[in-house]
Design a protein around this nucleic acid. Sequence first.
DNA 1: ATGTGTTTTAAACAAGTGTTTAAAATAGAT
DNA 2: ATCTATTTTAAACACTTGTTTAAAACACAT
Lengths: 208, 208
Amino acid sequence: MKKDVTTEEKIKEAARHVFMAKGFAGCSSREISKAAGMNVALVNYYFRSKSQLFKIIFESAMEDFVTSMITVFSSDQSIESKMRVFIEREFEFLSKHPELPVFIITEMNREEGCSIDHACFFEKIAASGIFNECAQAQAEGKMRKINILSLTLLIMSNCQYPIMAKSLMQGIHGLTDEEYTSNLLLHKQNVTDMLVSYLFSVNTITIK
Amino acid sequence: MKKDVTTEEKIKEAARHVFMAKGFAGCSSREISKAAGMNVALVNYYFRSKSQLFKIIFESAMEDFVTSMITVFSSDQSIESKMRVFIEREFEFLSKHPELPVFIITEMNREEGCSIDHACFFEKIAASGIFNECAQAQAEGKMRKINILSLTLLIMSNCQYPIMAKSLMQGIHGLTDEEYTSNLLLHKQNVTDMLVSYLFSVNTITIK
DNA sequence: ATGTGTTTTAAACAAGTGTTTAAAATAGAT
DNA sequence: ATCTATTTTAAACACTTGTTTAAAACACAT
């Protein structure tokens, strides 16, 4: 028997949407099954339990998250232009999946969330060779010497936070969706300028 | 009748802890009442409902959040040193309340979360005069010309994200609590350097 | 001690939770 | 058409949820 979209995929897609929007604790199995247009029992028929289904969705979300990074790192460019492209792509990717960072951070803080092995993601990133490339650039004086955690944090902070905090910023500054989106473009440019000049010290800083 | 700590305060304190750690959806009324060492019915006796209690806790959390900012802005210093002090204080404050940013962002995304008026917080910040001060510094060429949202985002991103994403970063980089904390100190310095030099263009950037 | 108002509790309520069971519907092979 | 295995459903399971009710415990004035 064949279908355009298998039942299993229907469930996963529905679960992805619902989990992302409301979190593990914020939704019920029945809600997911309804979003997939079927009976509750089917969810457990294909994926033994709610937790099991969640684990699959979460890991695939992490996978997307990391894959989006690695594609840029593996490309063949100077490290500085990799950085520029990376920021560009990260804003683009996260605009399409705005709930992803909050989702990942929230669920990492859940007790059960720790059961998942995260180190493998670091290994994947490391395997792209980006960290060695940075170390070399730092040794050659082409790049500011900061440790890898700090580098990761600088980039992630400035790419992810502006998208995670959308509703907060809209609330505080009183902006519509469109206004926020257009402001985000300006901000992306500022972030790029700031990070590139800080890390690679392109001394074209002239203000006023 | 008098007590050292009133029942009402006991409930609020317990609710604050539990809500922060698990979110609105992630905990039950009974969990809160047990944390406060009493019967469930008492929670509803003092605060009509779980939602009502939550609203109070959330708004007080936002209050703390904003108050922590304003104290620095209202002080009597140059805008550049205000920035330095602000980052310092923000890292210190958030280290003591690490769940606060994720909590606020998560609950802002809940449907019911929108019922709360957020604009008042912006007004409070604006009332501190910090925005005018920035505008003036920008007009005088002392500060880079970027809009307020972007400025807010730059600061918040770099102060809040490193603390929100602790468990994610620990997972990825394989760090203990102590290691992360000490790395956070180094990172705070990097953030300060980067932001100050980007915004005020202190051109002492010479690498290696 | 009695009465009064407040604070606290145990118990119950209906509704919703994750999960399981057994029966029904469906598919494909003979 | 009959049999078999897979897919889907309705119904029930035991348990937790937010909230309410009525009785108990308490404090305090008289």
